[in-house]
């Protein structure tokens, strides 16, 4: 665990940068984390972030693909380089433990 100041808030994050306390998450923090991943968040990103925050348990790429918000290809395009691990980091939830 490490301390990190994101969007002016002092936060505890894991070694990989995931928030330790999900309740501290704000949209501003999301934007900052996204910037570190070279992603500029759009409305569409926030729709997905909302979905994954509400469906954290058993979250998989397949579930996001079936959410009706985005298909799997679109999900890869919006969060390049590892959509599930990057989107969950931005959404302030735990790193997913799923293998699919």
């Amino acid at each position: 665990m490490a301390q990190k100041t994101i969007a002016g808030v002092n936060l505890e994050v894991s070694d990989e940068g995931y928030l330790a306390d999900q309740t501290q998450w704000t949209e501003e923090i999301a934007k900052e984390i996204a910037k570190e991943e070279n992603i500029e968040l759009t409305e569409k990103h926030f729709e997905i972030i909302k979905f994954i925050r509400e469906n954290e348990s058993g979250l998989t790429i397949r579930k996001v693909g079936k959410s009706g918000i985005v298909d799997i290809k679109g999900f890869y395009d919006l969060f390049p380089g590892g959509p599930l691990k990057i989107s969950t980091k931005i959404a302030g939830i735990n790193k997913p433990s799923s293998c699919v």
Binding site: I61, R62, K63, G65, I72, K73, F75, Y76, V100
Partner: peptide
């Protein structure tokens, strides 16, 4: 039940990711 897709859908997912 574990959200592991059928083969054709799995290929869909893999190719969607490049």
């Amino acid at each position: 039940k574990l959200d592991i897709p059928p083969v054709d859908e799995f290929l869909d997912m893999i190719t969607a990711g490049g």
